[in-house]
Amino acid sequence: MDEMLSEQMIAPACRLTSISLASESTPILEEITVDFPANACTVVMGPSGSGKSTLLKIAAGLIVPDDGSIEILGVDPARASDREIENLRARNGFVFQDGALWQNMSLYDNLALPLQYHEPERDAAAVRARIAELTRELGATRRLELRPSQVSAGERKIISFIRAIVTDPELLFMDEPTTSVDAERNTLLIARLRSIRERGRTIIAVTHDARIASRIADYILVVKEGRVLRFGSLREISRCADAEVERILTDVLSETATYDGDILDLLDPDESPFA
């Protein structure tokens, strides 16, 4: 870990220090200290119920931990003013596991609201152009006048992804962005993620999807039972000799893997067809 930190030339995009959280005296997260490097993609992995989603929400400042401090893009949400928080939010995006689209708005309004809110200088035509561009690129439905409940789960997920990136945030949080998304659009989505990363944005993703992990991850954070098991670059982790890490990664990745052979090879960037 020390070695990794020394590689970091710039401040981390998100820094968690001694984070603990308990639900009715059952610990969910314990003493988590992580610096998510900026301008890179970190994938959080771990077995179900290990607290990955909670960790992501804490990192995004959505859940206030019982203990510890957070810094997101240099801002401590616990101490920041409303205005600072609002500015911070304009610079990040979040893809929820269940989409969390606003049910009482059309898909179009779901996508337009963040733009209208943070970029009031954009006129209606510009908003429409931006939304059209992204929906076309990601293969989302053209019937944006529908309500979220009127489209499929995969469609909702894509729309929710577009909503998170519509303002082109510096920091993107994703909780299982590819579940229930079909293979074709999964490919489009990953391509988009790669271009986001290449433009120097920071991505923090919780996923079981081996394709995301192998194609866009720079760093891997392995979590187990509310603790950090290991954090390192993709190469480090995929070549890790730790039996427990290996077992976890195998279990996690096998849920989505369709390849035979050594599953950990999936994580090898050199093997990636998109690399």
Binding site: E86, W102, P114, Y117
Partner: peptide
């Protein structure tokens, strides 16, 4: 939460 994270109070 989606509102919060979008910066919409």
């Amino acid at each position: 939460e989606a509102y919060s994270i979008t910066g919409i109070n």
